[in-house]
């Protein structure tokens, strides 16, 4: 049960960091708060038996911090605080409350249809083990790897990975297009910049 307490504390830390990131007025502190939340997430991954996720999470967090800090360091933040709007606050609180109630019903198991499995008892260990139990039972014979996650990622479900590689490719292409120095039209109009 101590691990539950640790995870609870760390998620509380992530919540505090997220609130600071959203509400503080200084952008640099906000970025660093997001970084703190990401590192806490990697520790949670480690506690939950997912070293495969903790590893890239730390790395991705470092790169995200570098990208965001580089973006805001050389630029002046001229945005103003939006004035308090009672109607907007009411709508946000109402929507959040409805979402939380629905989530609570799903967690407790009162909602109709599919519900979230209880914490610590995945579908894998229940009466209907499903596909991941089959993967776990025979991945060493099927794929010959020691790391089951990699076996699923690149052998059983390689199509998912192909789609994921496509998404990365498209996102990076989009970045190149957005960052291109001079548009083609302008280049044609003024040949010597």
């Amino acid at each position: 049960m101590t691990i539950d307490l640790f995870i609870l504390l760390l998620i509380g830390f992530m919540l505090a960091a997220g609130l600071i990131a959203v509400e503080t007025s200084d952008l640099l502190s906000a970025v660093i708060a997001v970084g703190a939340a990401g590192f806490a997430l990697s520790v949670i991954d480690l506690l939950l038996g997912a070293p495969d996720l903790a590893f890239p999470q730390v790395l991705v967090e470092i790169i995200t911090l570098v990208l965001l800090i580089r973006m805001i360091m050389t630029r002046r933040d001229t945005s103003r605080q939006t004035p308090r709007d009672t109607l907007r606050t009411a709508v946000v609180l109402l929507g959040g409350g409805v979402f939380l109630v629905a989530a609570f019903l799903a967690v407790v198991g009162l909602g109709a249809g599919a519900t979230v499995p209880a914490f610590g008892e995945p579908l894998l260990a229940g009466g209907h083990p499903g596909v991941s139990a089959a993967y776990l039972w025979q991945f060493d014979k099927d794929t010959g790897v020691a790391n089951c996650v990699m076996g699923i990622l690149l052998d059983y479900r390689a199509y998912d990975t192909l789609g994921e590689a496509t998404v990365i490719f498209v996102a990076i292409m989009g970045g190149y297009v957005v960052l291109r120095k001079v548009g083609r039209k302008r280049q044609a109009q003024e040949p010597s910049p």
């Binding site: 049960m1 539950d4 307490l5 995870i7 609870l8 998620i11 509380g12 919540l15 939380l100 989530a103 609570f104 967690v107 407790v108 979230v116 209880a118 914490f119 610590g120």
Partner: peptide, 8 residues
């Protein structure tokens, strides 16, 4: 405890 983790 588990419910609290999910809700957070």
């Amino acid at each position: 405890m588990g419910i609290a983790i999910y809700m957070l």
